[in-house]
Amino acid sequence: MKTVVTNIQGYSLHDGPGIRTVVFLKGCPLRCRWCANPEGLLPEIQIGFLKNLCAGCGKCFGVCPENALTEDRIRHRIDYGKCTACGKCADVCDYKALVRYGREMSVGDVFDAVRRDKMFYDTSGGGVTVSGGEPLLQAGFVKALFELCRAENINTCAETSGFIPAGNLLEVLPLTDYLLFDLKLMDLEKHRYYTGQWNDIILSNARLAAEQGADILFRIPLIPGVNDDEENIAATAAFIKELPGQQRAQLMPFHRLGDSKYKALNLENAMRATEVMTPEQVEAVRRRFEDCGVTCSISK
């Protein structure tokens, strides 16, 4: 079984308990306007161009079999109409200005990479976190990976948008020690407007996971002007509070750091101009959740 992995990142401190290795699987059904990892949206391998690293050496022109590289270093080097993402240009780029997003890996490959940091999981209670993209679109892959991890006592965690078939969730949940579940917006239509999809499936999956007794942390990307209004905060808190079990929430304050990746892929970043919230503003939202009876933290 193979899939396209965007990145495997050791020493991750914020995506589940302990020191973790996060495996980013490529491909996501949502198109959230604030997405910080746009290279994870499409399921296939892509080539990005980081223009501030390009020295203009021109080495890449000679190797592209599709003639997909343009002279235009200022706007964008790659003509995605022609690019097949073969990666030959990235291989020769001495300056790492042309980069490959994603590589094909088997479950075994991923597990080998994860297992290497076992010593750090052991001292910290950490393990693997699958993220994305939407990792649970590939429930079979995740399940196979988690089975291998369980056999070696490696803690497992999945980070999901919740927009997946319920069957996928049920397939993975029994092998998942910890679930990071994103809750973006409670209003059905607003959710569709900002993410491209309605939230009904997401909310029912959240309920399902809670009913199954999963250890869940609800993560709320806090986006100024989108979901930081009183109405949405109250509705989100109410939803979380009504779920069975003691549920917790975590705020993920909006940041603009993903902008470079949009540029690298020549994508429009809808939230480029959005101002980040001050720590005081974020703290006020956190207190609102607490006031509504939901234990809430802020991701650093």
Binding site: N7, H14, L50, L53, V99, R219, H255, L257, G258, K263
Partner: peptide, 25 residues
């Protein structure tokens, strides 16, 4: 090239960020 920027769920090499984002960091 080794400088990594990590902020909850986001990770990138510092040098790959565009100048204004580097300023943010």
């Amino acid at each position: 090239k080794d400088l990594i920027v990590r902020i909850g769920g986001f990770s990138a090499y510092f040098v790959q960020l565009s100048p204004e984002i580097q300023n943010d960091v």
